[in-house]
Design a binder for these strands. Structure first.
Lengths: 209, 209
DNA sequence: AATATATTTAACCGTTTGGTCAAATATACA
DNA sequence: TGTATATTTGACCAAACGGTTAAATATATT
């Protein structure tokens, strides 16, 4: 028997999974350059050589983590534009879900932005997959339909999408700066963002009317 | 004579200035962790030991560069809200100037966001200075006045400011992702952003009406 | 229990990194 | 010109890094 691992599936608990959990924490916080294999090993309470035994190299391990993070980030949330309801309802629901997700996982967008700038070639290969779901075409059709029904003015799909994402994501990734700028502590800032779920939806809906 | 340097002022051309130029390039592109002293030396066409002769350590040099970048980023652009003209004019002018600056210096916001996440303590000390210019108070008064005159609906200053910055900055820092997502090449994307100067101002003005 | 295989460890390796230093060179001043 | 000081260099260093390996240990199968 060549394959005789006790736990061949890395989704099960065990050293492989421990490594993934620790690696995700460290890579999210420090990025590829800042992450240390020793720190990952320490956090997983395992010998450093095990990381190489299971994942060959730092880069290979990084790729596994990146895929995991990407699958998390390119969210089903865009599915809200499929659901029934008025355009306003959809937009309100989008901001509620998306900002909610970002509040729960603030390191995820920070990681993607920081790493895409520093190691673009490493991240880019993971973009083709989730992207091809036809979100843009689908959104385009929705906008056309709403314009016909007089629910909104005509707006280029690119602008619509960019503004949607900008207004959701930026306040999260720039949190350390904006906290300081607006003189809020952590709790106050999170409350501000929570209010933004409603406030920004309102802002957006008025803008496209 | 204790001080006998030929060129004591680092603002003048010479090795000190060469180092600063090269260091800024490398730090902007690679960040603190990714930057190599040797690469800075090579780019400046100088011996590596000179970097330490003039700036002691990597961290000291980094601090000088960060201050330089910060002074660039916290822009006089906010001054547009002081100028005469209608609120719409001010907002239009803001997006025109700010997005224009960001298009000319895309690495600057990318650097700040990426580094604030990775090395918050290093960047934070530079924020107190430029921030205390009372921009928020000033903007608050402007909003109050415009609400009184019926030029806009009441909006919390924090939201007003966050949206202003989010809509300007995010499309720049997320450029690599959004380019791929919207299937644009570099030239097309920059044209898109250029159009955003007008389009986003329009979007914003409608939203606050 | 015996054997084969999978897992884990400690010690080690080559390279790269930020940083140092003594010697060499250029410059200013007497 | 001679001398003091500022500048520049190449050679070097200790530490940290990712990665390897041989030996030790655990596990499953017969």
């Amino acid at each position: 028997m060549v394959q005789n691992k006790k736990i061949p599936d890395s989704a099960q608990p065990g050293p492989e999974k421990q490594i993934l959990i620790a690696a995700k924490e460290v890579f999210l916080e420090k990025g590829f350059d800042g992450a240390r294999m020793q720190e990952i090993a320490d956090k997983a309470a395992l010998n450093k050589a095990l990381l190489h035994y299971y994942y060959r190299s730092k880069e290979k391990l990084y790729r596994v983590i990146v895929k995991d993070i990407m699958d998390q980030f390119f969210p089903v949330v865009f599915g809200v534009f499929d659901e029934t309801g008025s355009l306003s309802d959809k937009i309100t629901r989008f901001f509620d879900l998306y900002i909610g997700f970002l509040l729960d996982n603030p390191l995820v967008p920070q990681f993607i932005i920081a790493e895409i700038v520093r190691k673009p070639e490493m991240l880019m290969e993971f973009f083709s997959g989730p992207m091809e779901s036809g979100v843009i075409l689908q959104l385009s059709e929705l906008i056309d339909e709403c314009v016909r029904k007089g629910e909104m003015r005509p707006i280029p799909t690119e602008e619509f999408l960019m503004n949607l994402i900008s207004l959701s994501v930026f306040p999260i990734i720039a949190k350390p700066i904006l906290m300081n700028f607006l003189e809020k502590d952590d709790k106050e800032y999170n409350e501000l963002i929570n209010e933004r779920k409603r406030v920004t939806a309102d802002f957006f809906i008025r803008a496209i009317k």
